[in-house]
Design a protein around this nucleic acid. Structure first.
Lengths: 200, 200
DNA sequence: CTTGCATTTTACCGAACGGTCAACTAGCAT
DNA sequence: ATGCTAGTTGACCGTTCGGTAAAATGCAAG
């Protein structure tokens, strides 16, 4: 294990929960460095700027998701629409466990950052957009499979996928405003009622 | 017109577009004072803290909405489900015009602030929650009317209203991530497909 | 043993942060 | 005219912000 790599990942590890639980602007480099046991000069050896750090943090969160819940949920062995149930459940249990540990519902870091920085940093916005885009693809593939299998009536899979992603983010937002993961539990299942019809 | 009132409202007027287009943490008192032509000491004569300012800003936005688009959309003279069409259109045109003027899609300031500060300031969160709660009531009343009129099949009006509000916020979030109000145009109408069934 | 590079330390930069304070001004009521 | 008060001014507080520069250290290859 390279020492350099270790310092870099300690920085990221210290930054992740902070950006998630507070906000980009509210978390300072100094605090991250102190928590990671790293000097500020060292920080800037590995990250040219604060933005580069948050970019790396976002990547880590994205990987974590892609290899965790999301991979489980979108398991091809599952019937397509059950994958969506699984994902919704995972979102609920995740937020619930965060609240139990942390006392707060932190929501989705991608949504959080999107609303905070989209107007101020196009590079960061592009990164977030790419993540949403991948998420949308997962939904889309699932919907197309469900249509092919006759589980659901034909629809505009692309737009419905986007709508479902939007709905999920919106439900998490509302839950965060109430600091209550149960909002996810009672609203999120309705995601399957969303439909955008195919163009004629 | 009281001079004091004028200073206070100049401060709020200067703060509104800034909090909307950037974020709570990213906008400083000093900048607001300069733009409003007010000394910092004067600012703190009217507002005990930055948080009290943003509280006032949120109130102003809420009033603006309640007396503008929202009042028009939820016009009792309109057939219930058409009110939702109207609201969705209003959200689209509003964001579109903001982008034309500002070059950016700014999204919903209530959603923006919710994700930024909910974990850090319960008073602010409570204010935002109250606004969402009122919005939900509008949807709920509309849905109940639509059910009574037989326009739509019976459903859980309360939860469906919450779901619709969540969806709207989610659509705006996704649109902001793409800096493109057309996302609202193509996704938001699907709001009417959302349904939470009544408990048995 | 030396050269060279990656990493780390330490001290520092100017600017901005939210907020405070005491002095001052103006208008109004007694 | 005097006293009270709401409003205003401008200087100031300590702290933190993101970021920089240079010197020191460790380590590995030649």
């Amino acid at each position: 294990m390279n020492i350099a790599t270790d310092t870099r990942s300690r920085i990221i590890a210290a930054a992740k929960p902070r950006f998630h639980s507070r906000s980009y602007a509210n978390v300072g480099i100094q605090e991250i460095c102190e928590s990671a046991g790293v000097q500020k000069g060292s920080f800037y050896h590995f990250f040219p700027s604060k933005r580069d750090l948050v970019l790396a943090v976002v990547d880590e969160f994205a990987d974590e998701w892609a290899n965790g819940f999301v991979a489980e949920a979108f398991d091809p062995a599952l019937p397509p629409m059950e994958r969506i149930d699984y994902l919704v459940d995972a979102a609920y249990f995740w937020q619930k466990s965060i609240k139990q540990v942390h006392g707060r519902m932190l929501g989705c870091i991608f949504g959080n950052l999107t609303l905070e920085v989209s107007t101020q940093d196009d590079i960061l916005r592009a990164k977030l957009l790419a993540i949403f885009s991948r998420a949308k693809s997962r939904f889309k593939d699932t919907l197309e499979e469900a249509v092919a299998a006759g589980t659901i009536a034909p629809l505009d899979a692309d737009r419905t996928a986007e709508a479902m992603l939007a709905y999920l983010e919106g439900v998490i937002l509302l839950a965060k405003s109430q600091n209550d993961p149960e909002v996810i539990y009672r609203l999120a299942p309705a995601i399957k009622t969303l439909r955008v019809e195919s163009a004629a």
